[in-house]
């Protein structure tokens, strides 16, 4: 594919495609844009689909194998869709000491899914994750990129409600 072709055929929104065009110019070496590109693409598309990998490989002049090799290294990147709101519960030591497992159990109960599960309506997915850098405000979770800290099992319904409302406001999904 020539660059022009790839532009017109981009699977990304025009804004994201433009952002990528700028991103590759930022570094001394184009390839440095790879990890941010994958993460931003995932934010938009939901996961690293074959098409996403193909376009990123093309934009950076890499093989798809190379892109997959890198992508599969990083734990935030995924090759399958997650829920619209991905709930990431840290159970690492500081959070664990302050009740992270109870929190995680409560999420499992409320959502009816386990680690890496997605609710049937696709609104939520749940993940037990490693330390997210909120140890002093434990236990903490991230919903997509939003932090919620100093939680207790009882905070769960409120958090879920908040996101359900957002999902509803955005037309169901």
């Amino acid at each position: 594919m020539t660059p022009r072709e790839s532009e017109t055929m981009s699977i990304f929104s025009p804004a994201l495609a433009a952002r990528f065009d700028a991103l590759v110019e930022k570094y001394p070496v184009k390839r440095s844009a790879l990890i941010p590109m994958m993460l931003y693409a995932q934010d938009e598309i939901g996961y690293l689909s074959d098409a996403v990998i193909a376009e990123i490989a093309d934009r950076l002049g890499l093989t798809e194998l190379d892109v997959r090799n890198v992508a599969s290294y990083y734990s935030m990147l995924r090759f399958k869709p997650a829920g619209r709101f991905n709930i990431q519960v840290c159970t690492n030591i500081s959070c664990m000491l302050r009740g992270a497992y109870d929190l995680f159990d409560r999420f499992q109960e409320e959502l009816g899914v386990g680690h890496k599960g997605i609710t049937p309506d696709g609104v939520f997915s749940l993940e037990e994750v490693e330390c997210i850098g909120a140890c002093c405000w434990a236990p903490a979770i991230q919903v997509n990129y939003d932090f919620h800290d100093e939680l207790a099992a009882d905070s769960v319904p409120g958090i879920l409600q908040q996101y359900r409302e957002r999902a509803a406001a955005n037309g169901g999904r």
Binding site: R31, A33, I35, P36, L39, L60, Y74, S75, M76
Partner: peptide, 27 residues
């Protein structure tokens, strides 16, 4: 100054793995 994001990997905090990651590679 250029800002950069990682994508979930503790090992990338090790300085040489950090450089690899910044160069778009496995950490």
């Amino acid at each position: 100054v250029v800002t950069q994001t990682g994508a979930g990997a503790y090992e990338v905090g090790e300085e040489s793995a950090l450089m690899e990651s910044l160069e778009g590679k496995r950490g």
